Simulated assay, not measured.
Amino acid sequence: MKINFSKIDFKKPSSLIVLLCCALTFFAGGILIHLLRGQDSHRYVFQVKPGMSSHEVATQLKQKELISSEFMFLLLAKIEMKADSIKAGDYELTTQMTTFDIINTLTSGQTIARRITIPEGYTINQIAQLLEEQNLGSAAVFKQLAKSYAPYDYMTTTNPNLLYHAEGFVFPDTYSISSGMTEQQILKMLVGQFDKKVTPEMRRKAAEKGINVYQLTILASLVEREARLGAERPIIAGVFINRLRQNMPLQSCATIQYILGTPKAELSIQDTEINSPYNTYLHYGLPPGPIANPGIASLQAVVDAAPTEYLYFVASSNGSHQFSKTYEEHLAAIERAN
């Protein structure tokens, strides 16, 4: 049964008496239901979506068996003058909470934060999909924002071939995202974390190598996607820096994987011939931008790149790499790796 509360005249004594009787009946029934439920308590994350009416909230609560009566929920919310004060967000509710507790919680605005972990090496596309899968935002909106988002000077570039200005600067970490945060606010928080993590000392040491923050991030993204063992990160970074200094193409398979957009176990010769500015087999120098969002270990590996004479590396079946100084040594390493 549903009541149109807007038509009840709360100034009439008869109306107040009816409501008082209903409330007393509810309290008595509530105590009985509580006793019948026993001591078991189950927790739920209850989501109030923007624009939901109190009737819709009551229906959802009843379906989840968090309340025993939609009518009583609406009645008490009206008596408490909170029927129009329910706020959107995620709330933690339990089966042991009274209807009054639930009403007070849903009108308090004290929403729970959702935790999300962004893995090292994820791309903007992967992060956007992760946010959508966890109901934290729209993948399409996040990607659209990431195309032009560059709040820090070191993110600024005029390269027309760049896919996302924010690529590489969304720092991989575990975050608490408050309910109701927009995609813009989330992106701002993730990029802001990068700016905090890349310390002035790291920037200074990179500058001593002739590398600015943007170049540091690109190189770190390559290291992130190529390295499997932590100890090899500084060596791989050193190889890339050596090749740049000797005007050799980087020939990073990771850039081809970025172009393809989906993982491929083994690249073909045709893959390395794809016409793309990100193809480091065809184009010298760094790609237009980062190809992933590197973690602190890869960023630090570039800053502390190993002084080495290696110019080549090839992956072994166990995830490690064999490093070589000459092309002949590299060919022999490829044979061994196969």
Rank of each mutant, 00 (worst) to 15 (best):
G261R: 04
S298N: 02
R243A: 04
Y149V: 01
L145H: 12
L24W: 13
Y284H: 15
P294Q: 05
Q322G: 11
T94C: 12
Y312K: 09
E232D: 05
S53Q: 08
R115I: 02
P151R: 04
Q246H: 15
V48I: 15
P307S: 15
Q39R: 12
S252N: 09
V141C: 02
I259T: 01
Q184G: 07
T117Y: 06
T105H: 04
A128S: 13
L222V: 09
K325F: 03
V45F: 11
M155L: 09
F26A: 13
A206V: 06
N104C: 11
L267K: 06
G137W: 12
D84F: 04
G29F: 10
L61W: 03
I218Q: 02
L130K: 11
N338I: 02
T111H: 07
G30N: 14
K147A: 14
E335V: 08
N338L: 15
M202H: 06
I211P: 05
F142R: 13
F73D: 06
T199P: 01
I127V: 15
T123Y: 05
G121T: 01
E328F: 07
G29E: 11
T182M: 11
A139Y: 08
G137N: 13
A140G: 03
Y91S: 04
P277L: 12
E65P: 00
K205S: 08
F323N: 04
T157D: 01
S14G: 00
Q300Y: 08
Y284L: 15
M155I: 05
S179F: 11
G109V: 12
Y91G: 13
K2G: 10
T280P: 00
Y214P: 00
N242H: 05
Q300A: 15
Y154S: 09
L36M: 10
P151S: 12
G192W: 10
S317Q: 13
G192Q: 09
K62E: 10
T262Y: 10
S15K: 07
P13T: 12
P119F: 01
I218F: 06
L162C: 11
M72T: 09
I211T: 04
